[in-house]
């Protein structure tokens, strides 16, 4: 177990590099758009692209997931459609997945 205050210089460089790369992506979109004129078509493209990114993350989770993940996601989406309460939906999906996994391998 490494000590709490142990800071390896290479690790700190890697972490700083991660932070810089992440900062570039977070600010980059705003920065680029201040140079590009935004047509309604481009705006539509970007809006759908952004939605597609969220869809991609969900699809990847489902494809890499087990039946408990599928049931949990389906329940979360169904509850969200019915109640429009995201945390309720997420917690119900999570509880279902925990239950299914417990039943399979207690």
């Amino acid at each position: 177990m490494s000590s709490f205050v142990a800071f390896d210089s290479i690790a700190v460089i890697a972490i700083a590099g991660m932070a810089l790369a992440t900062l570039l992506t977070r600010v980059g979109g705003f920065w680029l758009m201040s140079y590009v004129t935004l047509s309604p078509r481009l705006e539509r493209f970007l809006r759908h692209t952004a939605g597609g990114v969220l869809v991609a993350i969900v699809v990847a989770a489902a494809m890499k997931g087990d039946p408990a993940m599928w049931a949990g996601l389906a329940a979360a989406i169904a509850v969200m459609l019915l109640l429009r309460k995201s945390m309720t939906a997420i917690l119900i999906g999570m509880a279902l997945a925990i239950g299914i996994r417990f039943l399979i391998a207690p």
């Binding site: 969220l54 993350i57 969900v58 989770a61 489902a62 997931g65 408990a68 993940m69 949990g72 996601l73 979360a76 989406i77 969200m80 995201s86 939906a89 997420i90 999906g93 999570m94 509880a95 997945a97 925990i98 996994r101």
Partner: peptide, 12 residues
């Protein structure tokens, strides 16, 4: 169920 929790955030 933490993996379902994060996927659920995106799904909702």
């Amino acid at each position: 169920g933490l993996d379902v929790l994060i996927a659920g955030v995106f799904a909702t």
